[in-house]
Every structure is written in C-alpha cells, then in structure tokens.
Computed example of a mutant assay.
Amino acid sequence: MLFSDFRRGREKKVANSFVHVHLVALRYFSETVRSGSMRQAGEVLAVSASAINRQIMKLEDQLQCRLFERRAEGVRLTAAGEVLYQYVRRLDRELERAIGQIDDLRGLRRGHVHIACEAGIGRDFLPAVLADFHASHPGVTYKVEIKSALEILEQVATDEIDIGIAMSPPTRPEAAIGGRALMPLGVIAAPGWPLAAKSSLRLQDLGGERYIRAKDGMGGGYGWQKIIDQGAPQAAILETNSPDIMSVMVKAGLGIGIRSPIGIMSDLSRGELSFVPLDDSLAPHPSLTLFVRGGRILSSGGAVMLEMLREALPAFSQRVWDLAGAQMPLGGISTGAS
C-alpha cells in the first residue's frame, strides 16, 4: 500500500467517525475548556468528572489525537483541541440560531435571548425591560452576563451574544449600534460634602479634593478618564476597577468619585450619595449604547427584545437626568440602528 493510500484511508476513517460524534460529548468538551478542569465542568453540568473524562477520551479516540494536556491543576488545550473548540463554538451558535428560527415559527411561545451588560446597567436599566418582556412572552428565557465594556464589544464582534449594552466603549467595525442615549457625568460624594450644594461643577473646581479613581471604562465609558486626569489637579488616593467599590469608598468618606448615575440610582434617591453634574467640555457625556453584530439577523425573541430596549431608552434617560438634576441635551437620544 502506498503512503498516500494509507493517508487517504486514515482521513476517511477520521471523517466518517466524526459524523458519529455525540453532541453530549462536544458539550462536555466545551464546558471543560470554559471551566479549566473536568471536575469544575462536572459541577456545572451536574455529572461526574469521570463521566466527562470518558466522553472526552472517546472523542480523542475517534479523532485519533489528544485534545487536552492533563495536568494536576486542570487541563490545557492541545493544538488539535484549539481547532475543535473553535468548531464547537461555531456549532453552538448555529444550533442556537436554528432553535431560534424554529421558535419563530411558534410565535415567540419559546425562545432564548443572550444579553451582556455592565453591572450598573444590569441593576438600573435592564430589570424593568425584562419584566415587561416576560409579561408578554413568558415562554422566553434569558441569559444575562455582567461584563466590562470591552468584553461586551468582543462578545458582540464574535457573535457570542444577541445584544450588548455598555457605556461608551470604543467602537468596532463588527458591532452595529442599535440605539443610544447620552447620560450625565458628575461628581459623587458623601452627604454633607461642601460642594454638593452646587448646581454643576467644572473639573477645575475639584482642586485639592481626595479622589477615588475608576479604571478607564468603568462607570461611564472610555477615554474621558484620561482627559480628567490631565485637566483636574485632584489627588487620586485609590484606584479601582469596580464602580461599586468606588461608591462604597465614597460613602465611607475617603474621597469623591466621577461617574454616571447608572448603578447608584437607589443610593441617590435615598440620599446616601450626593451627585453634582459636571458641566465641562473636558468631561463629555457618556452614552448608554445598545450593540448587535452588524449584518446579523436576530431571532424573533432577540429582535423584539432589542426593540423594547430601544423604546425604554427615552423614559429611562429622562429619569437619570432628572435624578442628576441636569437638563438632557437636545438630540441626546437615538433609537435607530446605525
């Protein structure tokens, strides 16, 4: 037998065997990659680690290659495993779309919508929209992930989610804007702060104030934080990647913070924090932005959800501006796709 004949025979065997790969085995494989170990994957899937290992060993036998390097601390993908994982991710997305199209035929009696948003948006904006949607479509389920703005854009660009909601992240060509609304940016402080009685502030008013600095992209978008650092002479005594930690530290009297009201609306309503709007060209207003992948046709559930999110933007935006004690800019809302 010539080597080329042997190779063609082996390739045919692998191709034929792969047809019989069970979706359960691929699911076990995919969750092991995400979890980093078979034990943790077993906890997520409610099966034993040994059951997951058996299915993965069958996959390796069918494909005639190792998919993981097994280590004491967990597993690591081999080159072949990386190839398979990219395939499985595409398969997951295509299967979800197929199920979504089938659900469309049922008139939204069933379905699933995958959303990623920042924590403050998930706290103050999303719940009311989901409640209204659920009242009309009780058979639809949801997955809501809390991510940073950059992670949300990455998930939109790679088609891992249906809808992303973030505050002014850098744009990407793969991500289309489904709607957006300008939001106020201001100074948060503990009650009784001397400047809290002001109707608005400029950055130069903050000289000498102790400052809780947010990592760029937290609490109101990207880019403006660096501008504020250059334009304001206040001393940053603490830096955090969590808007919630910033608020807690401000409440404790450690200093002031700069952010949007989204995520602390209850604190502001109860008077536990003060908010003074910034009126300064060096501190532009961030936008609460809805994202979808450009060119993607959403399932009926995703399309209806996106429309409800768009419709909710004007009223929510007005609530935020009223709570901030500031006037919403003209043209501050866009509910059309771009």
Rank of each mutant, 00 (worst) to 15 (best):
Y142C: 04
S317L: 01
G331I: 04
S299H: 11
P138F: 02
E160M: 06
G231V: 08
I228A: 12
L298E: 01
Q204K: 13
K13Y: 09
A312C: 03
A235T: 15
E209F: 09
E272M: 10
D61H: 14
H114M: 07
A197G: 09
S35D: 02
A166W: 00
A214V: 12
S317D: 01
G81C: 09
L105T: 08
R180V: 08
F18G: 10
Q204R: 12
I163T: 09
S48H: 11
F275I: 06
V276S: 05
A80Q: 15
V144Q: 03
W224A: 06
G332A: 12
A176S: 11
D159W: 07
M218G: 03
I152T: 10
A49R: 12
R97G: 07
L298T: 04
T141A: 13
Q101H: 09
G257L: 07
L254Q: 14
S48Q: 12
Q327H: 06
E145S: 13
S48P: 08
W321T: 05
D322E: 14
A157D: 12
A128C: 05
L185C: 02
R7I: 13
S247A: 13
A312R: 10
G295F: 10
L59I: 14
I188F: 02
L309Y: 03
N53W: 15
V304I: 11
P314F: 10
I163S: 09
A189I: 00
G81D: 11
I188S: 00
M57H: 14
V248D: 11
E145N: 07
V140Y: 15
G208Y: 11
G42H: 01
L126E: 10
E118S: 09
S247W: 06
E160L: 04
V292F: 00
G81H: 13
S48M: 04
A135C: 04
D205Q: 12
G336H: 10
R8L: 13
E43A: 14
V250G: 08
G331Q: 06
M183W: 02
Y211S: 13
I333L: 04
Q204W: 09
Y28L: 10
L105N: 05
L330H: 12
D132F: 05
R70L: 07
A157Y: 00
A166M: 04
S300W: 11
R97D: 12
D5R: 11
A149S: 14
A135F: 05
F275R: 04
Q86W: 08
S269N: 03
M265N: 13
Q55A: 15
Y85A: 04
A166N: 04
I56G: 00
S300C: 13
M249D: 02
I52E: 07
R110S: 15
L288R: 03
N241E: 13
L238M: 08
P286K: 03
Q40C: 01
G178D: 05
K12V: 10
A232Y: 06
S338V: 02
V113L: 00
G217C: 12
Y28G: 01
F125L: 00
E154F: 08
R66S: 12
G331T: 07
S30Y: 09
I177H: 01
A72N: 08
D322A: 14
L288A: 03
A131G: 08
M167Y: 02
I115N: 03
K143S: 15
E160K: 06
T289P: 07
S281K: 12
S168H: 07
L84V: 15
R310E: 15
R180W: 13
R213L: 10
I121P: 09
M167V: 02
I102K: 13
I152Q: 00
V187C: 05
M57D: 15
W321M: 05
L91F: 11
A51P: 00
E145Q: 09
